[in-house]
Structures are given as structure tokens and as C-alpha cells.
Amino acid sequence: MSVARIDARFAKLKAENKSAFVSYIMAGDPDVETSFEILKGLPAAGVDIIELGFPFSDPMAEGPTIQLAAERSLKAGTKIAQVFELARRFRETDQDTPLILMGYMNPVENMGYEGFANACAEAGIDGLIVVDCPPEEADGLSDALDAADVALIRLATPTTDAARLQTLIKRTKGFIYYVSVAGVTGVKEVDAGGIAAEVAKVKAASGLPVVVGFGIRTPERAAEVARIADAAVVGSALVDEIKKSLPENAQAVTKVLETARVLAQAVHQARV
């Protein structure tokens, strides 16, 4: 399934002239069971694609919100094996929503490329984003992911020029993630008008859907992005709802799903 599941989801939305709503949460935040409750509720809330963060002790591209989510997850004792178990349990409840794992290189190195890629495939994970693994260092990982039919998804950014873009799109599958602001997650705000031309360039060069993230917190911004890109990602605004609800875990589940519902609606209606 894997890469095909991502392609099928974008094909379906394209037929409906809709942009996709992508949500990000951190596995194990605030604990494994609560994050499972959130995960399993996301499709019904209108989420089209799920990004699931796997925690790392030194998340150097994250703003304070996701840093704290990783800290909470690790403090709760989350292991990478449990992240795969979360994904596997989610897959029992949903066979159509693409699930993308997102995180940093060292936990991947620690399992070995083949081990990590196979664990992804076995758990029903369709794609992988490794923030600190540029194409220059990705050959071994790409080989392993290709063999397991898991998409290695790359990021293009405001610092990417035309030549660099050609490097990035090689061996990329599923979609391209366009980082809308130079910076860490959840701090600067996206300017949809300002990035439209760049998004179009990335789409033309890659022939793949372009997913935009890093600076989207509100339904208004999400809708603006939905008009110029194939998908809008929201992470920090959802994760903030967890933080605000603590220590009431049940409330965290409700709040995240409510917020996701409002954002999903804004994205899906943006082109109407």
C-alpha cells in the first residue's frame, strides 16, 4: 500500500477540488495512550493525512511548542518501538489515511536504515520525513525505504534555489513538503501570497503535490494556504491544545480534535 495510499488520497481530493488538511502530533505526548486516542480520532475530525512525530532529545528545527511535546513524550518514557506500535494500532482502525512519520536522524540510525524502513512498512506507515537528513546523506536510507515501499519525503524551503530544487526532487515520492518560513516550527506566520510562486515552482519541477507547513496556526491562514497549495499542515497549534489541557488528558483529546475539525473545515471549504 504505502506510497500508493498517499497517491490515492491526493487523487481523491483533487477530484473533489479540495486541498488536504494535514495534522501533526507528537507520538507519546503527553503519553502513549492519550496520543493514541487523538490519533484514532483525527480522520473523523476531517484530517486527510497524519504526520506523527517521533520524539528526539535534540529537535534542532523545532520551536518551543514541539520541543516541549518531545520532552513530555520522552519524560513519559516513550520508546521508538511504541511509536511503531501506535501506528500499527491506528492502521487497524483506518486503512485509507496516509500516515507519515516525522523526526530526526539519530533514532533512525540507531535502528539501522533497513530495520527502520521495515518497521515503518510493517506498522502501516506510508512516508518518512527526517528533518536533518538532506539528499547528500540520504542514499542508504532511500535504498532501504524504496525496498520497503515507504516514501522518503523531502523539504523545500525559502532558501531553496532552482539548482537545489533539482537535487531535492530526486528520489522523492508522495509529496514535497514546502517549509513556508525560514525558521523553526510554530513561530513565524506564513504569508500565503508571498509563497504562491515558490509553491508553483516546486510543483512544476517535481510533478508531485506540494504540502505547506511550519507557519500555519489559524483557520484563516490554513484556508489561504489551501488556495495555493495541495495541502496545509498544522502542528504547533494542535500541540498547544495538549499543553493547555494538561493534566486533563481526556480534555486534551477533545480539544485537539475540536481544533482539528475547525481547521479541516477551513481547508476543505477554501476553494468553494
Binding site: A61, M105, V131, C133, E136, E137, R154, P158, T159, V179
Partner: peptide, 20 residues
């Protein structure tokens, strides 16, 4: 040329930093 000392070194940075 890739900044490798045998198996070590390299360039593991987020894409935003790569051009820099």
C-alpha cells in the same frame, strides 16, 4: 569532498540551512 573522515563527519542539517 563530502566532509567525511572515514565513516564520520558529513552534513546532517535541516534543508533550510543546506544552501548556507
Amino acid at each position: 569532498a563530502k566532509g567525511r573522515f572515514g565513516d564520520f563527519g558529513g552534513l546532517y542539517v535541516p534543508e533550510t540551512l543546506m544552501p548556507l
